[in-house]
Amino acid sequence: MSGARTPEPPKLEPMSAADAAVIEEQLGRPPRGVAGIAYRCPAGHPGVVATEPRLPDGTPFPTTYYLTCPNAVAACSRLESIGVMVELGQLLADAPEVAAAYRRAHEAYLADRAALGDVPELAGVSAGGMPDRVKCLHALVAHSLAAGPGVNPIGDAALARLPLICPPTGH
Score class of each variant (00 low, 15 high):
P9H: 06
D19Y: 00
A158K: 07
L116I: 03
A111R: 14
A38S: 07
T63H: 13
F61P: 01
A146K: 08
G36L: 01
C76F: 12
A160H: 03
F61E: 04
D57V: 07
A123C: 03
A158P: 12
I82Y: 04
E87A: 14
S126K: 03
A158F: 11
V84P: 05
G33M: 09
P56Y: 04
I37T: 03
S16N: 01
G117M: 01
P7H: 06
A139F: 00
E87C: 01
L110S: 09
T6P: 05
G148H: 07
G148L: 10
E107A: 11
P30I: 02
K135A: 10
C136A: 11
T169Q: 12
P163H: 07
P14K: 14
A50L: 00
G33D: 08
C166T: 06
P120I: 10
Y109H: 13
A158L: 05
G44A: 06
P53N: 06
H171Y: 09
P96W: 09
M1Q: 12
E8Q: 15
M85Q: 15
L67N: 05
G83C: 04
E25K: 14
E80M: 02
P42H: 09
V22D: 10
D19F: 03
G83K: 11
L91G: 02
P31Q: 10
S16F: 05
L122H: 07
A147M: 15
V34S: 11
Y39D: 08
P60D: 06
D118A: 15
M130Y: 01
A74L: 08
S16A: 08
N71Q: 14
A75F: 04
A20Y: 01
V22E: 09
L91Y: 05
L92D: 04
A75H: 11
G148F: 14
P153W: 00
L122E: 04
F61H: 12
V22G: 01
Y66G: 05
H171C: 15
E87V: 15
A111M: 01
R103P: 00
A111S: 12
L67Y: 05
Y65C: 00
D57C: 10
G89S: 13
V22S: 05
G47C: 04
L145N: 00
R103H: 15
E80L: 02
P30K: 14
P46Q: 06
A21W: 00
A4W: 02
H138Q: 12
D94M: 06
L12N: 13
A74R: 15
L55V: 04
E52G: 07
G28I: 00
A20P: 08
L145H: 03
G3R: 13
V22W: 00
G47I: 01
G47T: 10
Y102H: 12
E121F: 09
R133H: 10
